[in-house]
Design a protein around this nucleic acid. Structure first.
Lengths: 136, 136
DNA sequence: CATTCTGTAACTAAAATTATTACAGTACAA
DNA sequence: TTGTACTGTAATAATTTTAGTTACAGAATG
């Protein structure tokens, strides 16, 4: 994960948790994160698909948490956002004619899987509510 | 880490381990990894700075492991290669006028530190020798 | 002293990420 | 019933990051 989607999603969810059910507009959240509102809406779309938030269209619309922050742990957010391999593998096409190259991706994937498990385990120890409580 | 430097470094070190002291040229290694030889030399430069390998210049030159593969664990390699934060934070400049935005990076960094610790712990359980032994 | 390497710098190309523009659709409220 | 303020999403542009290439000085060999 090279992009900042995890940070953006966590920021959004933290804002929504602290809004205590009040609807927040994408523009407001974009102002807090300091990014473009369209990116917030895209990220909200993903969070909505994963059941974390709901949105209301139209005037005075906005988004809100659709489940308790205690029921969302940080690993859930990570999984909802993740697309690449943790340690990066954007281009990785070793030479199949080389005995090492041929087997590299298999062993690399095994390694990536176990490291990701460790990461997920660590992240799952904290809920969104816990994270949000760190803020004043 | 969004790039594939970890995979490249691990591939290089695996090749060198299996070469059992024989010098390998950057061009040979580039062939196995299927990338440009200059990238291999750049990565070797970093690995050299971290004391994992040494290189011999000139004709019949090349690189070799400068310490036992049993003394290099995968977390060492990760640390030698790492530059960004694990979960991505390329652009992250939240609004300091927002009470949440203002504190976000502090809490995000705490989180990143603990997840990275978990990752490093997992990686450190395997040495380069272990990894290399998985290959036929 | 020609050859084959390394070590780097400089530059180019490609890919990924982020930002912007545009606009249809929805809901509210005067 | 119509203007306003939102969402949702597509299309595109700009920016940043990553990877590849070219070029060449310097080192070791035979």
């Amino acid at each position: 994960m090279n992009n900042s989607r995890f940070a953006i999603s966590l920021h959004i969810l933290t804002l929504l948790e602290r809004a205590k059910g009040e609807l927040l507009s994408s523009e407001f959240m974009a102002g807090s994160i300091n990014i473009n509102p369209v990116l917030v809406r895209k990220e909200l779309s993903n969070l909505r698909n994963h059941g974390f938030v709901d949105s209301k269209e139209g005037k005075n619309g906005g988004s809100y948490l659709s489940k308790s922050a205690k029921e969302i742990n940080l690993a859930d957010i990570y999984k909802a956002v993740k697309q690449n391999n943790l340690l990066g593998i954007s281009k990785n096409t070793p030479n199949p004619q080389c005995s090492v190259g041929k087997q590299m991706n298999t062993h690399l994937n095994n390694l990536y899987n176990s490291t990701e498990q460790a990461l997920v385990k660590e992240l799952s120890s904290q809920t969104l509510a816990d994270f949000s409580n760190h803020f004043d």
